[in-house]
Simulated scan of single mutants.
Amino acid sequence: MQYSKIVGLGHYVPERVVTNQDLSEMMDTNNEWIVERTGIHERRFIDPKMDTVANMSAKAARMALERANLNVEDIDFIILATITPDYFFPGSGVLLQRELGLESIGALDIRNACSGFIYALSTADQFIKTGMYKTILVIGAEIQSTALDLTTRGRNTAVIFGDGAGAAILQASGQPGILSSHLHSDGRYAEELYVKDPGSSRPHAERQPEQITDTSTFKVHMNGNMVFKHAVVKFHEVIMEALDANNLAKESIDMLIPHQANLRISNYIQQKLGLPDEKVYNNIMRYGNTTAGSIPIALSEAWGEGKIKTGDLVCLAAFGSGFTWASSLIRW
């Protein structure tokens, strides 16, 4: 049987560090308020003159290629997960292809927000298992900072998000790698966490930028309590689903890497599963919520710090806008 294995990991975060103190100078907030509610101490914001989704992705990809001892020409397909593309269209996957100097290979964009990287990983896994592709570059990348309302009005979401990109390279293998992935959605809650515009289903006058006077629908709307209540349930369910599908117990997990949405959610799931600190990796305190970028950035850091070793059982899990939620179980 043919499996897919992650053979390289990389990440990139912008140089600019934005602390809670920095935000307190822009809005009515403070370090204690932010840390108590989110666990975040700082995040990274792009320099619009330097950073794009595509070039951040390229930097993460080059790190992953170097770690895997591969050349860029070895890539034969790209899957890029983002909800903050550089253009409304085309997708940033083709822009990444251009950044890497590749020609004619396919590039697929996935728009599943916080669950996007696991959806992308699962898609790549299927392509490799069928033999369609041999080496796939999977990216999760976001630029949230330029869309945030950095005033007191927008503080509930502005303090949460950051920018960054993470990359994984998958290759075919005769040995188990990705054991299974589990993908779910429930569109009944779509408007509990969303950005309404720019959307296509608007009258002409409401879709043309020069005629828009109210830009509030271009900002993130989040029903925080609703998201939290669903997240703590679905995170646990989808992790247990992955374990049950592979006849494994929760004690078998060597490393859990949850989507970095809120440290309170991660801690709750850790306690629910009974996992010690050394078996859960969090970096939200340094980077905030980088949406589709959060899991690959954390995965890359955890591996780089020697916290993931050959033979380990690694579990990825995410919950976010859509609502969508997902998990992936990997034998390293």
Rank of each mutant, 00 (worst) to 15 (best):
G10M: 02
R16D: 05
V17A: 02
L23T: 02
N30F: 02
E32S: 10
E36G: 01
H41I: 04
D47R: 10
D47F: 02
T52Q: 11
A54Y: 14
N55T: 10
M56F: 08
S57D: 12
A60C: 05
L70Y: 09
E73K: 14
E73H: 13
I75P: 13
A81R: 01
I83C: 09
Y87A: 10
F88M: 04
F89K: 00
Q97I: 01
L100I: 08
G101C: 06
G101N: 08
I105L: 13
A124L: 03
D125F: 02
A141K: 11
L150R: 05
T151Q: 06
G154M: 06
V159M: 09
V159C: 13
I160W: 07
D163I: 00
A165I: 05
I169C: 08
I178G: 05
S181V: 02
S181L: 06
H184P: 03
R188K: 10
Y189P: 00
E191T: 13
L193R: 09
V195C: 08
P198Y: 05
S200L: 10
D214M: 01
D214R: 03
F218R: 12
V227D: 03
H230S: 09
V233K: 15
F235D: 12
M240E: 14
E241H: 07
N247M: 09
Q260K: 09
L263E: 12
L275E: 07
K279N: 15
Y287A: 00
N289F: 03
S294P: 00
I295R: 08
S300H: 08
E305R: 11
K307H: 00
A318P: 01
F319S: 06
S321L: 00
R331Q: 13
